[in-house]
Design a protein around this nucleic acid. Sequence first.
RNA 1: GCGGAAGUAGCUCAGUUGGUAGAGCAUUAGCCUUCCAAGCUAAGGGUCGCGAGUUCGAACCUCGUCUUCCGCUCCA
Length: 513
Amino acid sequence: MTQEELFKKLIAHSKEYGFIFPSSEIYDGLSAVYDYGQLGVELKNNIKKYWWDSMVKLHDNIVGIDAAIFMHPRTWEASGHVGAFNDPLIDNRDSKKRYRADVLIEDWLAKQDEKIAKEVEKARKRFGENFDEGQFLSTNARVLEVGGKRDEMHRRMVEALTANDLEALRQVIVDCEIVCPVSGTRNWTEVRQFNLMFETKIGAAADGASTIYLRPETAQGIFVNFLNVQKTGRMKIPFGIAQIGKAFRNEIVARQFIFRMREFEQMEMQFFVRPGEEMPWYEKWKETRMSWHRALGFGDARYRFHDHDKLAHYANAAADVEFEFPFGFKEVEGIHSRTDFDLGNHQKFSGRKIQYFDHETGESYVPYVVETSIGVDRMVLQVLSASYAEEKLDNGEERVVLRIPAPLAPVKVAVLPLVKKDGLPEVAAEIIESLKFDHATQYDEKDSIGKRYRRQDAIGTPFCITVDHQSLEDNTVTIRHRDTMEQQRVAITDLPQIINNKVTMRNLFAKLK
RNA sequence: GCGGAAGUAGCUCAGUUGGUAGAGCAUUAGCCUUCCAAGCUAAGGGUCGCGAGUUCGAACCUCGUCUUCCGCUCCA
């Protein structure tokens, strides 16, 4: 089976068993929006709990908040999203290809640099050891011409981008005589802005309603509450603020199932440190976060770091944790050293002093921030794609099994009477009663026992408890393990403890570094 | 947004030259009572993605539209 086939099966399986549905399906769906079903929501909640507890419960210097999705519009000016989240796009009419205008120009600039470098190389060969590069660059006519134009175009591009002047930006493309790499023509459309932030209105239109945005990231809710939390929580640097919440991005193309959605959920922790101490913390959090992923037991080889060369406007270091999905290694989490960019800008834009007085050093400063930001939906997809397996059994039959780590499984225990008579269902019902306040349970008496095991395998239930005739005599039942399909006989009274030991989150926390 | 492919029951799919829609699995009820699914009986479930058009008649032909997948493009 190819990875592509596997991915398709996973999508079908997710729908068939109630994990993930296309949104508004009865109206033909809504592009790149999905709903979580009865099992999907359990899985997702368990993932969130694993993250939340590993951050907030296990660290006495990390606390959580839940900020609103709506934020003051100025927030997004301070964060840089109003400027940087707008991509200027241009289409070539012949090839029908779309490009980012500034990227086209950047490419052209790079080509000019290459030209100059080639001239230098040629001259070096000609003059040999006597070659003076500095003099050559400042006197050679060809180099001066190319370089001069390059610098002028670069200046105009920066000007146009800063002023948000789309027409000027297009003129730069025209003047550079940039051709489409595909069609080779210069038949360009206008430059258009594509805003990745969703807009809506607050207040009645008649009263001068103002435009507000659905947050494109949850981080800003933490930054604007920095002082509130630090002061009311008596937090001392270094400390962190964690948050789980929805964010929204109007992506040009959003695809690959729930990997890239327009509405998605983030789990973010912003860790505030002394200026200058951010790099050790950045390294520490990279390690901590990687161990969190690897504790799930999907195999260390399926994870890797991708260190960013090109940094976002706020960062001085950034890395992704990538997981090997059926469609390749892709980002599931980002660890960014955000410097004092965010707090500093909020200080500037709000006019409020956002600083921390450090009693140890006696200094007041804007803290630096190390961010860990993980996509909940990508985690769901990671768990599903790593867990899905089709196995050939000894008897020649096949089974589909989701090997979801027990603490994350949507259903922990299924209780099954071997037959639905002779008082076995009644015993099963009692067992459910003893477990259901602590664990997600299911009861099933329909069809043969083997079939019921398969159904539980398909949704990833780690344990099946089977009540048989012996149970009536000695108050024991069998526990059947999903992964090995082996069974063991235990006393009914021991069940709560046995199950609890097997499904507790502690089993994951124990593997964390 | 472009190009290609696709959309028929919960799932996987069939459906002939245009003649009022089928299978397997799944579901529900009953029978059977059996520790690794697919025994027996019965039932429910589809305005064939949506909307127009052509036609006496459209799942099938034409146009539009929506959605999904693949490739490009894009991606804090």
